[in-house]
Amino acid sequence: MNSDNTGLLVKRAKKGDQSAFTELVEMYSERIFNLALRILKNTDDASDVLQETFTAVYEKIESFDGRSNFFTWLYRIATNFSLMKLRKDKRTIYTDQDMEEKFDNPDKIQIHEWQDLPLKDMLNDEFRKNLENAIDQLPEIYRSVFILRDVEEMSIKETSNILGISESNVKIRLKRARVYLREQLANYMDEYVKDEKPF
């Protein structure tokens, strides 16, 4: 994706050039759809977020001042819509303090012997289900950081700009998300290793 090209398209779109806006939609809709899908895990909800995001961008593009990168701006809007949708469905809202108590204490970290299993062995339906359950239980403030950093491969600075949190907070939340997911999967993998290895 060429950022110079995006810049020119944004300039044209700001002046009301509809074909330029159409090109922007075509360039970025897949990434926005997948971002929403990874956060919400539901195609209908991801489709709604895609529509809401581009509708908001269409309405606001004239006021986009170009201080931030267009892509970062777009991602910020999409992430906010996704999180708003997620919050509507969630009964439990975890705070940073809840997660700190759960996952910052290395005494609670268990060592498991499953890291040598081939990745292909783990990608069975049961494992996927366990992973999805673990993601479901991951508080949304951590899920969004994990997806932006580890899946979308955004930098710490970009993630901080998108979520409107400090860079150090991005690092803390990412660490907790990774540890949380790893610990959730460890319980399942322990059982898997026991079943696979004859003693």
Binding site: F33, Q115, L119, F127, V151, L181
Partner: peptide, 20 residues
């Protein structure tokens, strides 16, 4: 290794999906 593996598994199980 297991933290890295967890991240890799998540990526593998969430490939890019085309917009319908």
């Amino acid at each position: 290794d297991t933290v890295k593996l967890t991240v890799n598994i998540f990526r593998e199980t969430h490939p890019t999906t085309p917009v319908p």
